[in-house]
Design a protein around this nucleic acid. Structure first.
Lengths: 210, 210
DNA sequence: CTGGAATTTTTCCAATCGGTCAAAAAATTT
DNA sequence: AAATTTTTTGACCGATTGGAAAAATTCCAG
C-alpha cells in the first residue's frame, strides 16, 4: 500500500539515491522544475535516463523529497530562537545562522526560491500550516520582548521577512552580488562583510551615533 | 542589415507586440525561460503559435526585450539617489520607491529573479559594467555621507543589497508573505506595514529607545 | 561457482518542444 | 472594387521531452 515509502535497502540503492538527489539539486536549483529535464539530471549524475528512472519513477518523485527536506532545514534556525535568551543576541545569532546557510547551502536556497517564484504549487498547504504556525509562535516571542521594552517596537513578522530576505539574497542573487563587488574588492570576504553589515543594520540602523 | 531592429510600423503590429510581451511577462516570470513554452505564451496572448512567431521570430526574441526593459526600470530609483539631498530622507525615499515597484511590478521583479537564479546567462556583462558602475557611483555618494558623519558608518554596497533584498522580497516571495500573514491579519495592508517597518529598520534598527 | 535478484542498457513510444511554410483571410492602399 | 500588402491559419518538421518494456548484465548469497 505504502509503495512510495519503500526506502532503499541495498548499498547501491542508498548510494545512487543520494547521487541522484545531489545531481537533481544542482539542476533544479538552476532551472526550476519545468525548466529541468530528466536527461540533464541523469547526465549530472553520470547515468542513463532509464537507469535514473529505475530509482525514481518520475520527475516529480525526484523533486518532492528535495523540497520536503529543505523546508525543515531552512526553518531550523528560526525554531532555535529561544524566548528565554537575550533578545538582541538571539536575533543576532538567528541572522548569523541564516547567513551561514546561504553560504553553505546556496543550491537549497535557490531551489526554494524557484518554488516560491512559481507560486509554490502543491506546497502552499505547508506554507499555510507549518510555516505560518512557526512564524506566529516566534512572532509572539518577539512581541513579548517588545512589550518588555527589551527590543524596539516593530512588526515582528516583517522583521522575520527582512531577515529571510537579506540573508537569502546572498545565495539567490549570488551572481549579482559577485558582479557588483567585483574581484578587486575581494568577493571572498562577502559573507563576513555581510555578517558585519547585517549586525549593524538590525541593531542600530543607519542613524549616526553623534 | 539591421533586420532585427525593424520596429513595428502598423497599428496591429504595435498592439500585438505589446499584447505578446504582456503575456510573455506573465509566463516567463513564473516559469523562467526554459520552463516556459511558446505555446503557453501564445495561449496567454490569445493567439496561435505560428501567429505569435510572425511577430517574434524566436523565444529568445520575446525574452530579450523584456529583460532589457527591466534592468533600466529597476535601477531608476537608485539613479535618482541625490548626493545633494539629505542622506536619511534620500535613502528612505529610495526604499519607498523600490517597495512601490515590488507592489506595482511584481512580475518584472520575478522575471529578474528568475534570471539571477539561472546565473544571468548572457546578462552578466551588463551586471559587470552598467550595474556595477552605478552601484560604485552611488556607494561613493553614501560613503561621502558617512565620512561627513551624516549617516552611520557601514558597508555601502551591502546596504544597497539589503535594500534590494528586503523590498524585492515582497514581490518574489509574495506567496510566502501572504501565507504567513494570513487573511485575518489583512494581507492587503502588507505593503504599508512593510514600508513602516523598513523605515524603522533602516533608520534605527532594533535597539530600543530607552 | 551458480541461481536468483538487483541493476543497467537498448530500444522504443507518444506527447510536446521550437520553429517553418504555403495558403487562406483580413486589412489597407490605389 | 481591384490590387496589394499584412495578418492569420493549418499542416507539418525534426528534436527533445517524460517515461515504458524488455533484454542484457552485474551483484551477491548460498
Amino acid at each position: 500500500m505504502d509503495a512510495e515509502n519503500t526506502k532503499p535497502v541495498t548499498r547501491i540503492q542508498r548510494e545512487k539515491h543520494e547521487l541522484i538527489l545531489e545531481a537533481a539539486l544542482d539542476v533544479f536549483s538552476q532551472y526550476g522544475f519545468r525548466g529541468s529535464t530528466i536527461d540533464q539530471i541523469a547526465d549530472a549524475a553520470g547515468m542513463s535516463k532509464p537507469n535514473l528512472l529505475y530509482y525514481f519513477k518520475s520527475k516529480e518523485d525526484i523533486h518532492a523529497p528535495l523540497l520536503a527536506r529543505i523546508l525543515d532545514t531552512w526553518l531550523e534556525p528560526l525554531r532555535a530562537l529561544d524566548q528565554n535568551g537575550d533578545p538582541l543576541p538571539e536575533l543576532q545569532s538567528y541572522i548569523r545562522r541564516k547567513l551561514e546557510m546561504s553560504r553553505d547551502f546556496p543550491r537549497e536556497s535557490r531551489l526554494f526560491a524557484n518554488e516560491m517564484l512559481r507560486g509554490a504549487p502543491g506546497f502552499s498547504d505547508v506554507l499555510h500550516t507549518d510555516l505560518k504556525d512557526l512564524v506566529d509562535e516566534k512572532a509572539r516571542v518577539i512581541e513579548k520582548w517588545m512589550a518588555q521594552g527589551r527590543i524596539a517596537r516593530c512588526d515582528a513578522r516583517h522583521l522575520i521577512f527582512s531577515i529571510w530576505a537579506t540573508t537569502q539574497h546572498y545565495a539567490d542573487f549570488d551572481i549579482q552580488v559577485r558582479a557588483v563587488l567585483g574581484k578587486e574588492r575581494g568577493g571572498e570576504t562577502r559573507f563576513e562583510d555581510a555578517a558585519r553589515f547585517l549586525d549593524q543594520l538590525f541593531l542600530h540602523g543607519l542613524t549616526p551615533k553623534k
